[in-house]
Write a protein that binds this DNA or RNA. Structure first.
Lengths: 305, 305
DNA sequence: TGAGGGCATAAGCTGGTCTTATGAGCGAGG
DNA sequence: CCTCGCTCATAAGACCAGCTTATGCCCTCA
């Protein structure tokens, strides 16, 4: 089924300028001059000139108006630049996350986080931290709640993040955000056309695409439904569950963190439910008594609205 | 001030694998084999092997466990893959938008949209449309409400999208979403520490970073405040306004569409306001009587929740 | 035990992108 | 009025990353 994507369509990488080109474009937009932008990104002016030109050729659109006293974006260029900014921001988040995965050695701040938080929230926090304290090296260990607790109690992590119903013993915590599980289906599913909210009973009676028992998400759902959730398929990663739901295999229940983009792009739609509370707390945790200090405190303060 | 970013830090492009590598990684994750992934992205197995290996070297983390019967992601690899997926999705949105900018000629569907909608929503819709109808060529023209109306009435566009208080005469419309303007400041601003919502009077009395008069956003704000909004600075693009607000120049009022990511990364914080309605409708529009048909109807149906 | 899938290594080619060197347009100031 | 300083464009050559083809080894399954 995912075969069906036309093979004549060349891969994205061939149609989208590379990151260096996009960064250059952002620099041109900000500085108003090819030469200045070139300087900022550390290349020569002719290289910048040629890169922008080839980007324009690739996209088939004029991006900048050149003049003897500078360059300004065209209307299309402004639009392209805004789209480019998103790509660069996603890349920056990737970079922040990747750096945290590797440093592990001399890091000043060692963070342990649940998968969901590591996946969706932590890169943003790391970027913010980096903006404020550029020299704070952070290392990241991801695992379930038990693993996070273990690392903290063994002194191998300074600050943890978990999402679940209970706080592991031996840890103090503070709620940093609330997450909500939502029922989602592919847009073609009959539920997407319902007028009325789903009832708890209907939800409990319907086989769902779910994470395995023991995952934070499943725990919350089981508790909310009184242990009754019926699996249609059980998968071991949020990503696999999403992919399955998007492909129309059936309804699923997922964290709103996980499906934000899919909802925006209408690959999934959210189905209102009544009579069930699918909220859960996201918490920062640390060993009882050892309040976070230094970089840990810094990071913690970034996570609170 | 943006000078301060250490120059020793090489550009993102040097630290983040390129799109082709990220797509390859996603394919490996999905297919469970380097060779199969190589085939899917149209390169040979040794090339894939080498690319993944150099990505691991670059990131300093093992991403896949190779075995004689396939390759599976490591824990770190799974995390990296999820972050990579976001970059690729942003690139796909970029691509969808860029294609619409260029096609202009033989397009089956010609869309005219306000800047805000073209910037934040349309790429997602185009991706969804492309998923359902891969062969629909779309062209995009961006402009303000008046321009959109003009294009529609001249028969140069089939479907329009505007955000504003009024529907241009001669057009029928349907509300596809509601947008909300929110007051934002840099996290360091005193307002970010307030306990109580801002009052309308306080907002009206404070000089704000704003778009120029005549922009959709400014219109709504002026109307909500009774024409009283005081500009601290007036800028001509949403992006410039955001950048200025992020840098701490002062409070601003922006569409929640525009600041979603900044809020998530805590570069900006949202300040609650009471006593003002800053909602506005986003509408699809078309010439009176000419209900959208064909691809236009298709696209329209994607935009409604 | 041989076939087939998996991955790694080596050698050579190719193409894109950088650099340096240069030229030409426009504006501000002596 | 001319020259300096900024802008961008072009040309020629060097360089390097990544590809392909050609192998080889390992493991599993029939």
């Amino acid at each position: 089924m995912s075969e069906a994507k036309g093979r004549h369509t060349q891969s994205l990488a061939h149609r989208v300028p590379d990151l260096a080109a996009l960064e250059l474009l952002l620099a041109v937009a900000r500085l108003g001059s090819l030469g200045a932008a070139a300087r900022e990104v550390g290349i020569t002016q002719p290289a910048a000139s040629s890169r922008i030109r080839s980007m324009e050729r690739q996209l088939g659109v004029a991006l900048v108006d050149r003049s003897p006293r500078g360059s300004r974006l065209t209307d299309a260029g402004a639009l392209v630049t805004d789209w480019a900014r998103r790509v660069v921001e996603a890349a920056a988040a990737f970079d922040a996350g990747a750096r945290a995965l590797q440093d592990r050695r001399d890091s000043r701040l060692r963070v342990a986080a649940s998968m969901t938080i590591a996946e969706y929230l932590l890169p943003g926090w790391l970027l913010a931290l980096h903006a404020g304290r550029p020299d704070t090296a952070v290392s990241l260990l991801a695992g379930n709640s038990a693993k996070v607790a273990e690392l903290l109690l063994a002194g191998e992590a300074d600050l943890g993040f978990v999402e679940g119903l209970t706080v592991p013993t031996g840890l103090d915590s503070t709620v940093i955000a609330r997450d909500r599980l939502i029922v989602v289906t592919a847009p073609a599913h009959p539920w997407a056309r319902r007028r009325r909210p789903l009832t708890a009973a209907e939800l409990a009676a319907t086989p769902l695409i779910l994470r395995e028992r023991g995952s934070g998400t499943r725990q919350v759902l089981d508790a909310a439904l009184g242990g009754l959730a019926r699996p249609l398929i059980e998968l071991s990663s949020t990503t696999a569950v999403k992919a399955s739901a998007v492909s129309g295999a059936g309804p699923s229940v997922l964290s709103e963190l996980a499906v934000g983009e899919e909802l925006g792009m209408r690959r999934l739609v959210s189905i209102p439910v009544e009579g069930v509370s699918l909220r859960r707390d996201l918490r920062a945790v640390w060993p009882t008594g050892h309040r976070p200090t230094g970089p840990a405190r810094e990071l913690l303060s970034l996570t609170r609205g």
